[in-house]
Design a protein around this nucleic acid. Structure first.
Lengths: 248, 248
DNA sequence: AAGTGGTCTAGACCACTCT
DNA sequence: GAGTGGTCTAGACCACTTG
């Protein structure tokens, strides 16, 4: 006897299948931190019992969450909360490729300071101008050559203890640190890509001539519930690297 | 009594579930042109009967094909072969967005001529240098301003009757024409994106100063069976437009 | 051997489209 | 009302991992 469709307020969605409701409940648990990044969630049988539905229904919910990269299935072991910390998928959101050979990037932190939110930045993050933020600037090097200049803006209230020291002593990707230290999980992002000419500062840092063409990659990252929590602008030198995209 | 796993040659895949075998069979039918772009394929029940499996197994095969945009499901109506001709998804592979308002593009054909394949182009398309090809050049305009300069290379043997007249009298996207006139169906593409400086010719055509930064989008398009059938290099002016990408 | 995810089936019923 | 895809169930068995 499965839970049946409840009456809905007029104007709302007319029909929501059970598995989507289960999916919602799982996302809510993820959002609440009931299972942390890298943890195994309960087995499909357990969840089916907890929610009072069949295993097949839980399975379909998890299928969608796995397709969206919120969960990772491992046959014979269990289902795990996706993380940016795994060796296999480091830099999950970075689409940069090298013309030859693999990309091995070293990080160089330039700056990390607390700032008041400029209006343009605040708007994209659904914040008010003047609210406290953290701005991080850094370089990524490949084989000793600077390739990416990043300018990262984060809401100050979510990243209270973020300091230069913390960033420097951490080895993996920023997004791993954000998960472990601040419980902020980046699950989705949108990028706007343009070609721009290098200004004096960018040119100097990337060791390119003034006016050299650069890829400008503006990334807005979201956590659970479609909440924007990071605005990042990267300038990519594309002499020996490129941005790779796959279309279906 | 479902068909069971057959013995496999050593070194081959050790296990291929039924639904993947069904998926293969459906792709084969698509490739053979048994169902044309826009057509409905047989119902799940029909296919289940034809292949001697349950509806659920056919369903899972179709699920994957729909996720890969090879098929489109329409509840209550049937399952259809995806096409580039539909109004709703015109320019399926074009990630260009306008800063404000929707993108409405007009096409201007510059050139269409038969050429021998240059070595660099031939290699990407798994052809030999000197083989016959068609080169098409065109501009896309938005509100009267040139925005995209495309240089398109196609294998000559697949596009025998492709002429300037045919391209000019056709109204929709090129990929629609390729489907209806040549039976070539683009199902997937890979793009390499760089920032470059406009050379004299590009600058003139896009009405920009010499050396203006442009987005260089090199697209390799594939048809069924991972066969590369188009190499396209687009130069995008990103003053009032941008390339949009979504990361999961 | 036990536990997990993965496959497959058969059947019932629901939501949607068209006639 | 007939036909299609969409949901849900219950049960059996397979593939994989770990103790």
């Amino acid at each position: 006897m499965p839970p049946r469709q409840e009456a809905v307020a007029s104007g709302g969605p007319l029909f929501s299948p059970l598995y989507l409701q289960i999916k919602r409940l799982i996302i809510t648990s993820l959002q609440a931190g009931e299972w942390k990044a890298g943890d195994a969630i309960p087995s499909e049988q357990d969840l089916a019992g907890r929610f009072g539905v069949s295993q097949g229904t839980v399975r379909k919910a998890i299928d969608e969450l796995a397709a969206e990269n919120l969960l990772v299935r491992r046959q014979g072991k269990g289902t795990y909360v996706a993380t940016h910390a795994e060796q296999k998928v480091q830099y999950r959101f970075l689409r940069l490729m090298a013309d030859e050979g693999p990309v091995a990037l070293e990080r160089q932190l330039l700056d990390c300071k607390r700032q008041r939110a400029p209006a343009a930045i605040a708007r994209r993050l659904q914040m008010r101008a003047g609210e406290p933020m953290v701005e991080v600037r850094r370089l990524l090097h490949s084989k000793g050559q600077p390739v990416v200049l990043d300018d990262i803006w984060l809401p100050g209230d979510l990243f209270k203890g973020l300091t230069t020291e913390l960033l420097n002593q951490h080895k993996g990707p920023f997004y791993e640190l954000f998960e472990t230290e601040f419980g902020v999980h980046m699950i989705r992002a949108e990028e706007k890509i343009r070609a721009v000419a290098a200004d004096a500062e960018s040119a100097a840092l990337l060791q390119l001539p003034l006016g050299a063409p650069l890829l400008s990659v503006e990334r807005l990252s979201f956590t659970y519930g479609d909440k924007a929590v990071e605005l990042r602008r990267g300038l990519y030198s594309t002499d020996s690297h490129f941005y790779r995209n796959v279309l279906n």
